[in-house]
Design a protein around this nucleic acid. Structure first.
Lengths: 109, 109
DNA sequence: TGATTATATGGCAATATACTCACATATTAC
DNA sequence: GTAATATGTGAGTATATTGCCATATAATCA
């Protein structure tokens, strides 16, 4: 792969990671894992203003991880690539590893 | 899981995703996938100043995705949780999906 | 000891991001 | 047509991130 292509790929990967990298957006992804939801319900569940949620949703749509469809007055968002959820299991690995290290540190005191 | 725990988990997950969410940091992770490297080599490979790379590395260490050891003058960084790399294959899925959509759009014109 | 090398960090300016409020748009029902 | 509802967006402020430079720290070697 050329350096320029690599650079583009890194930009793209970073954009996707950044689109996940906010507590509210993680909460939204977690909420959408069981099925599509309208903005109103997402806002209610995440506990934030609709306008704010709307912006966070558009960030994730732009990054390519969410899709949406309109149904009457409502706009229904859904996870486009559920493999995003695998990332969360890796996060669990990271956290477990940190717990293990803390325990090791504690034992050596 | 309690709401408070959920909130903490979301924060933690977001922190880790954010730690990946920068082109230089993606480049660093990609460089480290084949083994540990010193700051000097990482900086050279990523094409940025050492001071800048040093900061990016500390972001990832804080998030728990990198570890390091000192060896003489050098500090050697390594991927702590290679499952982070699985995230990149999901990114590939996201990108492929977008290509597919663009093609569909093109055909309909 | 002093010189050299590798890395980390404080300070600063530029830029990007997040949140809130008000308003615009779009769809439905009457 | 108007009213009501759901969503999106512009503007402004607050805060965070980034990159660069100068400098601090730490390890090695003469």
């Amino acid at each position: 792969m050329s350096d320029e292509n690599k650079h583009l790929r890194y930009e793209r990967q970073a954009e996707i990671a950044k689109a996940i990298g906010h507590p509210l957006r993680v909460a939204i992804i977690d909420f959408l894992k069981d099925g599509e939801q309208c903005v109103c319900d997402i806002a209610q569940h995440a506990g934030s203003e609709r306008s704010n949620i709307s912006r966070h949703l558009s960030v994730m749509v732009r990054a390519g991880i969410l899709g949406y469809r309109k149904e009457g007055l409502k706009v229904i968002y859904k996870l486009k690539t559920p493999c995003i959820l695998d990332f969360f299991s890796c996060v669990a690995v990271v956290i477990k590893q940190q717990v293990k290290e803390s325990e090791k540190l504690l034992k050596s005191m």
